[in-house]
Every structure is written in C-alpha cells, then in structure tokens.
C-alpha cells in the first residue's frame, strides 16, 4: 500500500464518518459543522484527483458561503430542540436496508472488474508547469461559454426569487404613495406651538 492509497483511505474514512455523523446528529448546527468536515474531505479527495480549482471552489463557495447561510438560518429560526428529538427512527430500518442494498449493487457494478486499475490505468501525474485553472478556463470560455452565461442568469434569477419570496408582506416594503403626497395639507405636517418665552425681568 503506497502513500497515495493511505491518504485516500484516511480522507475517505473522514468523509464517510462525518457524513454519517451529519445525518444522525440531532442538533442542526452540529450537523452543519459535520457537513463542513465532509466537504473538506471531499475537497481533499478532489485535490488527489488533480481538480485543484474545483476543490478550492468547493471550500470557498460551499464552506464559505452556503454553509454559513445554513448556520445563519439555523441561528435565526431558533428551532425548538424537543421537536427534533421526536420522530427520528421511524424509517431508519427500511432506509438502512435500502441503502445497504444500493451500496452492494453499486459495488458489484463499479467493482475492480469493471473499473479497476487494469481496465482504467491511473494516468500519469502532471508536472509543476500544469495549471488546472488555465485548462478549465480555456474550456469554460470557449466551448462552454453559453452555459457559463446561463449560469450567471440562473444566479440572478435565484437572487430575485429569494428576495421576492422573503419580502412578500406589505409591511416590510417601503413604497411611495403619490396621491397621499399631493393631497397633504400644511396643517398635517406642521404644528405651530405658541411658547411664552421667559422675559429678562424674571431672572
């Protein structure tokens, strides 16, 4: 067993362990933190696969933005913990059986006979002058330029949708009422108060 395999198995162990801890943790904030660990392990595995740009993107975008958004919402909603402890294990046996069967079937299909090293040999590592970002950018801005722009439009739609969903009720919106502004009278806005100023003789 060489060093690459050892690193892979260590990272896989943490990936699987933190994923399991994520789905079985009762506290949603702890689940988010376990998911962060899972994402870090996944990013490390991607670096092992020479996808450096995507690994950094996974950490920056997912851990930096999406997971913080999750934590934000969890802290904001203040979920009652007693309701989380209730119905939890109702579907656990069936789910575990289904999952084990799926993993067994996948292992049969994806085993070493079909995708082993003698079928797909491990490619040679790139040298120090190889830039993953350059290669991806060359593809992204030539072949995939239309999907790239569509992704930008999709993000814009997501922003608009999220804002309009949350700002639905009238009270949280600031708007202008023209008729009210035109019909306003001076006595509505200005109140004249007569104050008796103290004279100098009182001192």
């Amino acid at each position: 067993m060489n060093s690459e395999q050892i690193i892979f198995y260590i990272l896989s162990f943490w990936f699987v362990a933190s994923s399991l801890a994520m789905i079985f943790s009762r506290n949603a904030a702890k689940a988010v933190l376990f998911l962060v660990l899972a994402f870090f392990s996944a990013a490390s595995i991607w670096i092992l696969l020479e996808a450096e740009f995507l690994a950094i993107t996974l950490i920056l975008v997912y851990v930096g933005a999406v997971m913080v958004l999750f934590l934000f919402v969890i802290k904001m909603l203040n979920i009652d913990k007693s309701t989380l402890r209730a119905k939890f294990t109702g579907y656990l046996p069936l789910g575990l059986i289904v999952a084990v069967i799926i993993v067994a079937e996948m292992s049969l299909v994806l085993g070493a006979n079909q995708f082993g090293l003698d079928v797909f040999s491990s490619p040679a590592r790139h040298g120090a002058d190889y830039s993953n970002i350059t290669v991806l950018a060359m593809q992204l801005y030539t072949t995939y330029v239309y999907p790239f722009e569509l992704a930008a439009v999709l993000l814009l739609i997501a922003i608009i949708a999220a804002i309009t969903l949350v700002h639905r009720n009238e009270t949280s919106r600031k708007k202008q009422s023209i008729s009210e502004q035109v019909n306003v009278q001076a006595k509505d806005r200005v109140r004249l108060v007569s104050i008796t100023s103290p004279s100098k003789e009182d001192k």
Binding site: S19, I45, L49, T89, V103
Partner: peptide, 24 residues
Amino acid sequence: MVSLSDYLILSSVIFCIGLVGIFV
C-alpha cells in the same frame, strides 16, 4: 495506486448516506 472503482464506490457510499438521511 487508487483505482477508479475506489472513487466510484466511495461516492456511491456517500450517495447512500445522503439517501438514508432523507429517509430518516
């Protein structure tokens, strides 16, 4: 060397963990 099937089996295991999470 880590073979392609190792990565594929790892990702199928993670996939099933996510699936069980949705069930549970």
